[in-house]
Design a protein around this nucleic acid. Structure first.
Lengths: 251, 251
DNA sequence: GACATAATCTCACTATAAGAGATTTTAAAA
DNA sequence: TTTTAAAATCTCTTATAGTGAGATTATGTC
């Protein structure tokens, strides 16, 4: 891997922790990162002392309590979470549904706020869990607004998923679909993430860049075309309100 | 402040974010940390690119989405959270109460898991929010087991709080109370954190060091001496089970 | 007590970080 | 639109720290 400065090297340790691999031994970290033993132990010492990592049984490391505290601070401070809360309240009062705010960062999407008025809400993607990028309304509502330079690598990476949900077989076909979504200002997906559910999502934009998406999920069995159209309008409008409130001047 | 290595200097930026001050401008960060402008901007660039910080309106920074994702990973990976879950389930089924696991790290306590069977549970201390150190059963259950070297600075720092809840007026008096708690293996507090509530807490120990506490909170109006004694026994026993399961060999 | 592994230390060498000051970019005001 | 101010980045010299090989210590197991 290319040479990096020291601060990036220590932060790179944190990048390794994932859902499929939440625990690491020092030897594994050394091998994966290419660091020597003294270097890695110096970084682990700093990360442990700051609370970002903690030791767990078997000589392994996990993300630590500082992370738990910082997430609490983020929940409290994120203007997007604050601005969205009354809108989620209103939308879930108006329809039996789940309403989510999903942030797009780096190349991941994750839910940062949600409310539900559905009878038995079960969230496969609770706050913080990265969502699948190649499928669903949320992903498409974001992709539709990404600049080409960011979009092209994503389309390549998720080509199989995009093909398998019937979005298109070629880059040209996919581009056509995304253009249509951009014009509509909203994306709709049927059962792509959660079987039997309809997702309706619109992007939240900061200077035309999609930083997040607002999504409503409803049960397929209750839906007809008219309802979907109405909810689509509300979702688009609400996403625009949130965008204006946070990211436009004099908002 | 004393000289620190680069990795600690960059992590020190993250330390500044707190509940009372969740947003910072670069100028404020420079002043508080004593860093020059180019140095701080280099650190901010790394932290922003890793997702640990994000820009919000008005040229300020907040903790970013990476923190939200890492908290999710911590919830999934923390063996304490996993080991405690069935016990919290059992305890909240047996009594109308709120049951919590609170981790002790650095000099802070924060809730990492909770369940409630109380009729109207309202948590003043949701996951991640630091809890007051000078008052309540949880704090005392932890303090009672801290080594003297860690305990003495804490007693000094929270002397006023400790006095105002009637624990003792002098270090000697407080030491007597903490010794009694250590012998009992459990601490009980009446209305010190949440008015009208009784807290009953026992430490979770790793090699005799208190890394966490298990606490049950019940409504004061339902309690009598016999119930408190019974719940105290269950809390102590459950905390010991959890300690054994996670921190003792062949657990 | 012996042995193996985990973790830390030492120090010479190498590389990078820091920061003063300059420059560029961005935002705001006129 | 222009001007001004502030935010942010860049350059480059100097100073400092980081790296890692190998040694040593600490810890755990048999």
């Amino acid at each position: 891997m290319e040479k990096r400065n020291s601060q990036d090297r220590v932060l790179a340790v944190l990048e390794l922790f994932s859902e499929t691999r939440p625990l690491w031994t020092p030897d594994e970290l050394m091998r994966e990162l290419g660091y020597t033993r003294p270097t890695l132990y110096r970084y682990l010492k700093s990360l442990r002392e700051s609370g970002l990592l903690m030791s767990v049984r078997g000589g392994r490391f996990a993300l630590g309590p500082k992370v738990v505290e910082m997430d609490y601070l983020n929940r409290r401070a994120d203007p997007l979470v604050a601005a969205a809360a009354p809108h989620l309240e209103r939308l879930t009062a108006a329809h039996p549904c789940t309403a989510l705010i999903v942030r797009w960062y780096g190349d991941k999407m994750l839910c940062v706020a949600s409310q539900s008025s559905a009878p038995h809400p079960v969230s496969s993607y609770p706050r913080g869990r990265p969502m699948p990028m190649g499928r669903g309304a949320i992903a498409r509502s974001i992709m539709a607004f990404l600049p080409k330079r960011s979009l092209v690598p994503l389309l390549e990476r998720y080509a199989d998923d995009l093909r398998s949900v019937g979005l298109g077989a070629t880059a040209e076909e996919i581009a056509v679909v995304l253009k249509r979504i951009r014009r509509a200002g909203v994306a709709v997906a049927f059962g792509e993430v959660t079987p039997g559910a309809i997702g309706i999502a619109a992007p939240i934009l900061d200077a035309n860049y999609p930083v997040a998406s607002l999504c409503l999920t409803i049960a397929g069995q209750h839906a007809n075309g008219g309802l979907i159209d109405r909810i689509s309008g509300e979702v688009r409008q609400t996403a625009n309100l949130i965008s204006a409130e946070i990211f436009e001047e004099n908002g």
